[in-house]
Each structure stands twice: as C-alpha cells, then as structure tokens.
Design a protein around this nucleic acid. Structure first.
Lengths: 168, 168
DNA sequence: TTGTCTGCAAACACTTTGCACTTTT
DNA sequence: AAAAGTGCAAAGTGTTTGCAGACAA
C-alpha cells in the first residue's frame, strides 16, 4: 500500500482529517473537489461502522445535503476513497462492505452468519504468519484478509430457528 | 474420473469417492441421482484446480456427456456440492470460485492480483489463532478464510505493465 | 473557458427463478 | 404415477458506464 505524502514538512500525513486527506488525494490527481464528494467523505467520516453502498446512500438521503449525490456518484466516490486509502473494501454475501482504513489499526474479523455482523479483532500473529508464508513462496504480500465465519453468542441461541446459509 | 468402489468394507466415510459421497448426500435428502448431477460431480472430481461456474460449464461442454447440463443446473449442482461438503466456495473479483474440500487438508491462499492465481499454503497456526480469538469473543467459529493478496514472482517483474486493480 | 463530474438511463456480470416438460424413483 | 429435476427464458442483484448537461478550476 503506497500511502506516502508528497510534501512532508513534518509528520503531516497522520494528522490530516479524512476530508483533508481526500482533498489532497484529489488535488494530486487533478481531480476536483465537488460538493458531492465533500458531502460523501464527511458523511462517511462521521460514521464509524461498516457499511455498504446502499446504506451510505440511504444515510445521505436523510440529509438535504446528501440528497444530491446519486447512486453512481456514491459508487464512484467510494472507489476513490479506497484508492485514497481512506476506506477498505471487502465482499460479504455478494455485496461490497466498507470500513475505515485511515488512522485505524490493522485488524481482522469474526463474521456472524446469523446476524451478518462483523466483529473486529487484532492479532499481530496473523501478519507475522502472512509475511512468513509470502516469503516462502517468493510472493510480495500487499495485504491480507482473515475472516472467521461462525455464530455469535446471540445467534447461537436462536440457532435452529434462523436459516443461516453460508454464502461467502 | 470416478475412481473407487461405492461399497467400502473398512473405514467408511473418508474412503468414499466424491461421487459416492455425493450420491449418499442426495439419497439422505430425498434428492435424485440424475445424469447431469453424475456428470458434473465426475467432471469436478477429475479436475483438481480452482474453478468458477463458467469454467466448469465450458469444460462440460467439451464432452458429449456434459453438454447436456445447462447453466442453471450447473449452478444448482455446485450449491449442492458445497452443501455436501465436497466443495468450498469463495468469492474473488466478483465471481464464485470453487475448490475441493473433501479429503483435502485445510489450507489458505495467496492471491496474485496480477495473474489472479491462487497459491495454497497450510498453517495450523492460523487455525489456532482463529480458535483463540473466537473463544475470546464467545463466538462459535465454523470456518475461516485467510487470503494474502499481493504479487507472485512472475507478476512482480511485469509489474508496471499489467494494470492490476485490487478488487476484493 | 476548459475539462472534469454528475445524473440519468441503460448496460453489466454473475446468479437465481418461474414454469412446462422430462426423468428418476 | 408421483415427485423431483431440467432447460429455457426472464428476472434479480449489486455495480458500472455512455453521454449530455452542470460545474469546479
């Protein structure tokens, strides 16, 4: 993941707000800082849960500001935010789910097939293993994704009721 | 190519051929052993690489036998084979990829975004970590999936050429 | 002004489904 | 004969794209 700041005067990068970081990203790419892009980053930055495009769109439409961002624009902007290193994308049950990646520590997930909830956890062992394995295969690891699928306490109780299919 | 005998006199389950295992699965579910299901399992069992529905369909259509299995039937049968524990499904670049799961040891993958190749590796440490983490969160782990994304040696050379987008 | 962005509608890839007919049991 | 399976065509999902008008620089 190439993150670096093009102009580093001190310890710049880390202190930037997501919006500022995105603005910088756009600027260095000759892209424009439009109203919709601003509204979208702000909205995303103010919500810290995992979300998908549809949820974001729904959230935006609750505000007069965000109502003006269309679905295509939301999709386009999400892709840009991933490029900018603000968001991380993963695919669950056939749709893309996003989470914050800027200023957030590396982590992995437990995924409950009952309630479709993601639980975060950290383990530096995982990263260590990835590096080791990559090395053994002359592979240049860029990132990894570990998802432990199962049932959370809550869903384990109502297990027999809910038909939890294992789509991956 | 279906190999073995359907009647094992010694150690049962593990010794079953994929086709036999599938037949048993179908039987116990009141499902029927049709020509297309037979052709599909046999074809799948005789190819040991990762594949997606389209590749399987293409492969089937090269044989007179398999030509009679339609796309919907292939999809339906793949789902059944996953249920039967013969195949494991994962999603990469927006389409489902299958791999053998019957009689194959647990493993994880390195995924090259350049050539979209999966490289298998095993690490019991990973399973250990998953269990540990699940325990800490009162989570009942059913399975896990670890994918290390990056570039293989080959693609690392032609890195600048190939536009390797990071869809996940 | 210039060139990027946007919204719309249509297109997309992959997968699933309704239904009349075919097969297995 | 009864029940389950199949193929076809059509419908879904979630996401992407072509294009003309809107807008940031």
């Amino acid at each position: 993941m190439a993150v670096g700041s093009d102009f580093s005067l001190g310890s710049v990068d880390v202190a930037l707000t997501p919006a500022a970081r995105f603005a910088e990203f756009l600027r260095t790419r000759g892209k424009r800082i439009t109203r919709q892009r601003r509204v979208i980053v702000d909205h995303v930055a103010s919500h810290h849960e995992h979300f998908d495009a549809e949820q974001l769109l729904a959230g935006l439409r609750k505000t007069p500001e965000g109502s003006r961002a269309s679905r295509p624009t939301v999709y386009r902007t999400l892709a840009e935010m991933v490029d900018a290193g603000l968001l991380k994308k993963m695919v669950l049950d056939g749709r893309a789910v996003y989470e914050h990646d800027y200023g957030y520590p590396q982590h992995d997930h437990l995924y409950c097939t009952g309630c479709r909830t993601l639980i975060e956890f950290s383990s530096d062992e995982v990263a260590r293993i990835c590096d080791a394995v990559a090395g053994q295969h002359q592979f240049r690891a860029q990132s990894h994704r570990l998802i432990v699928t199962g049932l959370c306490t809550h869903c384990r109780s109502s297990k027999s009721r809910s038909r939890h299919q294992d789509r991956v």
